[in-house]
Design a protein around this nucleic acid. Structure first.
Lengths: 151, 151
DNA sequence: TTCATTGCAAATTATTTGCATTTGA
DNA sequence: TCAAATGCAAATAATTTGCAATGAA
C-alpha cells in the first residue's frame, strides 16, 4: 500500500499539484478495497470515517484526477452506477486487462486476468485497420455460490 | 424493417399491451439507425420530427419496455451516456454477441460480431464455476480513418 | 505569501414519477 | 366502456460548478 502512496505523491509533485490529506485518503480507500468496485458515494462513506470534514465534491474531483492520471479505472456495470477501481497498472502489472464476472443473481463482481484477447485484437487490426489500445470485457451470468444455493 | 415492426406488434399483443403510435415510432427510430448508438435524447430528437407531441418520458418508458422485451440492448461507453441499439437478436441472429470498437479520437462506434469468446467462457466455467450467460466487449483505440488522417 | 484546493450550497443533467387526460381494444 | 398509456411538470439522483475560506509549498 505505502509503495502506491509514494508513487502517487511523486506523480502529484511532478505535475505541480499539491499533496493533500483528502487526496491520500481517497487513494487509500480505493487501494484497500480493490475488490469492492465502489461508487463515489461508497468512497465518500468510507473516507468520512477517518476524515468527517471531507466533502463529496472533493471525492468526485479526486476520482477524476486519479482517472486522468490513469491510477484508477472506471467501470459501469449497466446498473446505472459508475464505479471505480484501482488500476491494475498501479499494482505493478504492465498492461491492464481488467475483466469482470458479474453475477446477475447476487450482484457480486469478480475480476480476472487473461490474455486471450490479444489474438482477437490482432485479427481486428488486420481485418479492419482499427488499432486497439485497450479493452474491457464484462461477462454476465451466475456465480458458483448462487448455482450451488439453487440446487 | 416492417418485419421487425410486425414482430413487435405481435409481442405487445401477447403481453396484453397496447400498440401505440409512440411505441412504433420509437422502435422505428432505433431500427433505422442501427449504427448510431443513440441516447434517449437522440431518439427523442429524431422521433419528434414526425411526432412533435411526443414527450421524452414516453421515450424513456418505451426504451425501458424494449429493453425488458430484449428487443434493444443498452450500452455505456464510459462517457457517462446510456445508449441504446436495436438488438442483434431482433435482426434474426440466434445469440447476440455485440462487440464495439470505439475510436477515442473521433468517437465513432463500430460493431462487429465474433464467436472467439466462447472458448474463453468455457475456460472460465471450468476454472471458476461461474456460468456465463452473456458478455459484452468494448475495444478502445483509433480507427483506420483517424490513423490515416494523422499520417 | 500565494495560488491550488477545499467545503458548501446552488446548478446542471439524466432519468423517473404522479396525476389528470387521452386513447386503443 | 375502461384500463393502459401518454404528456406534462415536478421529483429524484448523480455529478459538476461558483465562490469564499483554507492550507500546502
Amino acid at each position: 500500500m505505502s509503495v502506491d502512496k509514494e508513487k502517487f505523491i511523486k506523480m502529484l509533485k511532478e505535475k505541480g499539484l499539491k499533496v493533500t490529506r483528502q487526496r491520500l485518503v481517497v487513494l487509500e480507500a480505493l487501494a484497500e478495497h480493490k475488490d469492492r468496485h465502489m461508487t463515489a458515494e461508497d468512497i465518500y462513506d468510507l473516507v468520512r470515517i477517518e476524515f468527517p470534514e471531507i466533502g463529496i465534491a472533493t471525492v468526485y474531483r479526486t476520482v477524476q484526477l486519479l482517472l486522468e492520471m490513469q491510477l484508477v479505472d472506471r467501470i459501469e456495470l449497466n446498473d446505472g452506477c459508475v464505479r471505480y477501481e484501482i488500476g491494475h497498472q498501479f499494482s505493478g502489472e504492465t498492461r491492464h486487462y481488467h475483466h469482470h464476472l458479474i453475477c446477475k443473481e447476487c450482484g457480486k463482481i469478480m475480476s480476472f486476468d487473461d490474455d486471450l484477447l490479444e489474438e482477437l485484437e490482432k485479427q481486428i487490426e488486420e481485418k479492419t485497420g482499427f488499432h486497439v489500445w485497450d479493452h474491457e470485457l464484462k461477462l454476465y451470468g451466475r456465480c458458483r455460490e448462487c448455482i450451488r444455493d439453487k440446487e
